[in-house]
Structure formats: structure tokens, C-alpha cells
Amino acid sequence: MENREQYFNRINRFGRISFIIFFVLIFTIPTVVCAVYDIFPGLATVLKATMGLFLILTPIAISEIVSFVPLLGSGASYLTFETGNVSNIKLPCAMNALKLAGVQPASEEGEVLSTISVAVSSIVTTSIILITALLLAPLAPVFSNPAVRTATANVLPALFGALLVSFLAAGDAGSVVVKGQWKAIILPALVVAVVHYLIFPIKGWEGVIILVLLPITILGARFLYKKGQITVVPKVPKA
């Protein structure tokens, strides 16, 4: 059996190589299309159109790497960033899986289970999008139905309401239980409330705000831990 480091190196080697191939692949698609149809845009046009997006998406990527990789582990991170829909599907899905299994992120078990979770999630999402693409015409009345539009427009409040309860309620972390963990959300929530409602709306800046909040959240938790408001106790086996 491989030790942890050997497995870690192998999954990262595989992830990096497959990501490099993926990088080439995504540029191949527009290149082949433009070559076959002879519709290559000018370099200046492409640069002008790309620059704005690049400047928005790159800081978001930095924030996602710093914030989400410690939670997901390497294997799940490669898959998550490659298949997209990170904060609305893959991250909550993996976190839910770890919570149900009672294992912590940044553990060997957590790394393995979050990779399985994200792989399954990616396959399901891709299948649903494929079905939609194939049935777009017959499904058009369903998608234009006001009730369906309302329900899907409210996916985030529905998702994060459920996540909030399950993450604040439990402190199960493998062989130990973290008690009073919920108190650690008060400080980041206050910071977001002050910034969002009194300074500027954070829509579009979520990635940057998460990046700023990470040290604040950990320092706040450290303070509560030192004061005995958050404690780590061994898990008592069920009788």
C-alpha cells in the first residue's frame, strides 16, 4: 500500500498532466473551428475581448484556490476547477459528503471521499446538461414556465439555508468533536453585513471577500478557542 505522500504525489501528478492536456484542449476547439470556417479574429480583437475577463476571473481563481483547496483536497480540486460550477454545486456537494461521513477536510479520508463526491456530482451535472442540450426544443415550455424560473432563481437561498444548518449544528471531525464551532461564524457574518450593507454591495466581489475573510475567521476562531468558547473533545462511541 502506498503511504500518504506517495498517493498525494501520484494524484497531483495525474491531476497536473490531465489539466495541462485540458488546457490545450480548450484552446483547440476555437482554433479548429476558426481554421475550418476561416473566421480567425485579429489578435488585437481577441486580446481586447479577453483582457476584461482575464482581470476578473484570475483574482477569483486565486481566491478559490486559497479558500477551497484546503477543504476539497488535491484530487477533488482538479476535478472541481475543471468541471466548474464550484461554489453552487461542487464545493457544497463535497462538504455535505464529508459531513455525512463524519470526516474532516485535509485528512486522508476527506481527500478520498471529496474526490468521489465531486466525480459523481460532475457526472450527474454533465448528464443533465447533455439531456437538456438534446431535448432543448421539447423542454422549452418547461424552462419558460414561470414556476420553474422562480424555483431555479432561488437555488442559492435554498442551498445555503440547508448548508448553514448542517455546518453550524455539527462539529463531528473524525475521532473528535468540535463544540461551540458555530460561534466562529458570528465575526465573518458581521464583517460581511457591515461591508455589504454599509460600504458597498459585495455582488461580483465574493471571491475577494472570501479571501479577506479567511484569516479573520481563523483568528476569530482562535480567540474563541483560547477563551474556551470552542473546545475539541474526543468522540464518545455510541453504545
Partner: peptide
């Protein structure tokens, strides 16, 4: 032990950023 706490609360930053703005929506 604090490492367990720190990893556990990381996701709270994500929750705070997405949850708090709902109250203004």
C-alpha cells in the same frame, strides 16, 4: 487540536459571504 477547528471553520467564510446578502434580496 486548533488545526481541527481552523479547517472546520474555513467554510464559514464561504457561508457568510453567500448567506448575509440574502437578507437584502
Amino acid at each position: 487540536d486548533f488545526g481541527v477547528v481552523a479547517i472546520g471553520v474555513l467554510f464559514f467564510a464561504v457561508l457568510a459571504v453567500f448567506v448575509v446578502p440574502f437578507f437584502g434580496q
